[in-house]
């Protein structure tokens, strides 16, 4: 494929992405405060899902411990508020990413030695080490009560918190998250389309052959692990001000399961799948919680149906349909 051809094939995707972006920019103008905040949560989760999918979709590693990095991002912010009395969101973002990245770097050393189910269990076990610390070291972490985080100052204090907290979240903070979401998506797009990203896909497809074309499999897996953790940490850092509070629940492993859910729902074989999945899940959960106390049952049934009948997820299935419509007689 020549560079020109590559540019041509990416063009429709980028056009669609631009349309979606315009829609996202318009959200606070078109929808209620509550709905805008719901979208905002969706964007935050989408960042986590993007990071997660670098491992599952591109490197072929199924982690059940990403709550650790989300939680690390969140608790880093909360602890900086508690002990250092920081207020700048920019500082929180940087610290959250670094904190989660550091933990991922450490856990990664152990985890990337394994694949398949052992990788899954190991990531799970290590994330639960963090969870039990968040739970039990209550004099630091607040235990089950968690830690409160006030609304931060945005853009180097140029924007100070508005009077009304909801107003602030649905307007200024929404755009703040949107900007970081777009940036994170662009960076992840670059990463998966970089030579490094190709190397990860090669590892996913065939670890042995990857080694035999000169890709040092473990080292690349480790880098992917750290990048993935850092993205999820970014999501955690952005999530705290939105939620106003961080509790050990977000480090507990069902939260990792939720991130897995995002990615499977949207489809882990496509770049956009995790974003679609996170947004869709967020809506599904918000409404399921509103209608019934048995929302987990609803979600579980949806999940099982997706696994059974739509293994490509929402985005993957849609992409497949589009491709078939465009080319009635596939060459392959």
């Amino acid at each position: 494929m020549s560079p020109a051809a590559a540019r041509r094939s990416a063009a429709p995707q980028l056009a669609a992405a631009a349309l979606v972006l315009i829609g996202l920019v318009a959200v606070p103008w078109l929808f209620s405060t509550f709905q805008t905040i719901t979208v905002c949560y969706g964007l935050v989760f989408a960042i986590a899902a993007l990071g997660y999918n670098l491992l599952l979709g591109y490197t072929g590693l199924l982690s059940f411990g990403h709550s650790a990095y989300f939680g690390m991002g969140a608790y880093t912010v909360a602890l900086l508020v508690k002990y250092m009395e920081w207020t700048s969101m920019e500082a929180f973002v940087v610290a959250g990413v670094l904190g989660a990245g550091a933990v991922a770097a450490l856990f990664g050393i152990v985890c990337v030695r394994y694949t398949r189910i052992f990788f899954g269990i190991l990531t799970l076990a290590l994330s639960q080490v963090l969870w039990s610390l968040a739970l039990k070291l209550f004099w630091v972490t607040g235990g089950t009560d968690g830690l409160r985080v006030p609304t931060p100052k945005l853009f180097f204090s140029l924007l100070t918190p508005a009077e009304d907290k909801l107003e602030f979240l649905a307007y200024r903070y929404y755009y703040y998250v949107l900007i970081l979401f777009v940036a994170a998506t662009a960076v992840m797009w670059l990463i998966v389309h970089s030579p490094f990203g190709k190397a990860l896909q090669a590892i996913r497809d065939n670890e042995t052959r990857a080694e035999f074309v000169g890709v040092q499999v473990r080292r690349y897996r480790w880098v992917a692990f750290v990048v993935s953790g850092a993205f999820t940490g970014l999501a955690g850092a952005l999530w705290v001000p939105l939620n106003g509070l961080t509790t050990p629940d977000i480090v507990y492993w069902p939260f990792s399961g939720r991130i897995v859910f995002f990615v499977v729902l949207g489809g882990f074989r496509t770049f956009w799948g995790p974003i679609v999945g996170a947004m869709a899940y967020n809506y599904l959960e918000t409404y399921a919680v509103g209608y019934t106390v048995y929302w987990q049952l609803v979600l579980g049934i949806v999940f099982v149906l997706i696994v059974l009948t739509l293994p490509q997820g929402l985005a993957g299935t849609a992409e497949g349909l589009l491709r078939r419509m465009r080319r009635p007689a596939p060459a392959t």
Partner: peptide, 14 residues
Amino acid sequence: LLMTFGLLLILEDV
């Protein structure tokens, strides 16, 4: 693995 995870969610609420 994902299927059994879905079952976990369902059984919990059942």
